[in-house]
Amino acid sequence: MIEFDHVSFEYAEATTINDVSFRLVAGDFVALIGANGAGKSTISKLCNGLLKPSRGHVLLDGDDTRGLRTSALARKVGFLFQNPDRQICQNSIRAEIMFGLENVLADAAECQCRCDDVLAAFGFDGAADPFSMSRGERQRIALASLIACRPPMLILDEPTTGLDYRECMQIMEQIQALNDAGTTVLMVSHDMEIVQDFARRVLVLNQGRLLGDGPKDQIMADPALLAQAKLLPSQITALALRMGFNNVHTVDDMVAAVSATAS
């Protein structure tokens, strides 16, 4: 679906992405992890054409993003920004969802229909003012506005930053449901617990280079690789590794591993 073919990106005479290659297939749930300044946001912006590669190619369904406009790519790639206030620009939730829909859909009746569906799915009052809502609610409105457009791929740039646990889970469960329904997800995150709980594949980035690309269990069980990227495994994995358990990433995994040892 999306392919990075030896992609490099230079920004203000400094190389931020260096010879990165990977491929995402339809239905993937991939987490992109790395320390601050590793190039995660640059990679996410390269995916939807906000940035064009200095060298190499980013191919979306076989088409080079260099030849495509970002506004046209919006039909295929939805982008959820870390700060919802940069996205929300209308005075009611309905108008906000319709704004995105009208940009990518010509059929007014279809726009209304999709808007109603999304409002019902998220439990929003369409007339409510998005600017008077909490940060978590605004992030959900931004997500609802993206989902309404039904892009086959979603890019999430640290979608849970600044949210409490309940808000974070609300967002992630909705993203999980979309992924289960076939939407490809690329999620940039610092939160290793979220990565553990939701991603199936992990890309590790360090100083613009791809250090690791593999199944979550394999990457998270490699503290040396994470340390190289200046990252720490989640607490449950770190504890499990110290206790000599492999492939333990959740509390349930830990309970099962301890029970198996005890019996």
Binding site: R69, S71, F81, R86, C89
Partner: peptide, 11 residues
């Protein structure tokens, strides 16, 4: 950037 990503034709 955020609006372009939503399909607004700033480009």
């Amino acid at each position: 950037e955020a609006q372009t990503a939503r399909g607004v034709e700033f480009d």
